[in-house]
Amino acid sequence: MRTSYLLCGDAHQAEEMLQSVLVKVAGNWRGIARDNPEAYVRRALVNEHISWWRRQRRSLAFTGPPRSGRDPGDESVSRIVLWQALARLTPRQRAVLVLRFYEDLSVQEAADLLGCSAGTVKSQTSHALGRLRALAPELADLLHDTDTDTARQEAK
């Protein structure tokens, strides 16, 4: 549920998305159980989120940038700013960040789950982080150690 919530950013939608995915899992449980059900659910969630976003893009709402001049050390403010900035990423960029920095998956694990190459995950991570920095410069402090972490993981 938490991954679903981070992917879509809305409590009701997170519930609907997860329920829809679990219904599919329950219907095909025999086939899925032999594989890796957890990875299957994650992948299905990401796909569900992306297809929902496509349906919604005709009537996208736009959120303005957060007001400047706030104390970046204020934890709750940076959380809200991060929340808003995440909402402005593409679904794929958001998924990459959630998988790598919340689920703590390696580059290869994220690539397997998203069905793309490790190089694509690396470049998407870099683009997503760059976009977060552009959208919310006050998150620079928060994102600082992702560079080190990214380099460490990529070296693995």
């Binding site: 981070l6 997170a14 519930e15 329920q19 959630v98 928060l142 150690d145 992702t146």
Partner: peptide, 22 residues
């Protein structure tokens, strides 16, 4: 773990607390 992870985890704590399995 990064600070980004911690912040994402705090946001995720606001996910609905429902049991969908049943």
């Amino acid at each position: 773990m990064t600070r980004l992870h911690d912040e994402l985890a705090r946001i995720a704590e606001h996910a609905p607390d429902v049991d969908l399995a049943d």
